[in-house]
Amino acid sequence: MATLKDVSQCVLDGDLDEIKVLVQALIDDGTDPIAIINDGLIAGMNIVAPLFKSGEMFVPEVMESADTMNEGMKLVKPLITDEDIPSKGKIIIGTVNGDLHDIGKNLLVMMMESRGYTVIDLGVDVKEEAFSAAVKEHQPNIVGMSSLLTTTMMKIESTIKQLVADGVRNQVKIIIGGAPVTQEFADDIGADGYSDDASTAVELCDLMMSEQNSPEELSA
């Protein structure tokens, strides 16, 4: 008989065929779909994340695990409403105006999704106004911006100015990253956080979300 632990292990192993069998078996046994998600699929990804951080797993293996989780989610999702799907928070991510580099950004998207975040990926060469419009439309907790060039990093600043001008800056936390970007630059332009790779960016978002959800923050 399949168990939630088997599902977690299957996600860790990245076994796309086996996950379908296991999740379907649990559904047929009447296991709570939310438990399958939280204690099986996402629990598996929660094992993957520290292994990746410690260098024991490569990105392709993390992606296989994420794909496996998503394959399991496909079977569970029809059984629950969208509101019931657990989400750690919502983040909008994009590479700024004039910049096409997106490997780091795409890694972050994949890792955020696999850690249970709802991610809206705006893509590359995202204009300042597009970031602002997306904040208004999706009401995210966090906005993530990436730049790989010394000239386009200034577009991060102009995007923050756009968010301020449109009155939505204070609704969100802003994290930034990319080769020329530093903590000092983040401080100078008024970003809330900086990360030098996708893995630590996820931890930064976790921290921001926990602060946002803390009693002190909630009462503020």
Binding site: T150, T151, M154, F185
Partner: peptide
């Protein structure tokens, strides 16, 4: 060589 961070 390249420019320091600046708009063009």
């Amino acid at each position: 060589f390249t420019l320091p961070g600046m708009d063009i």
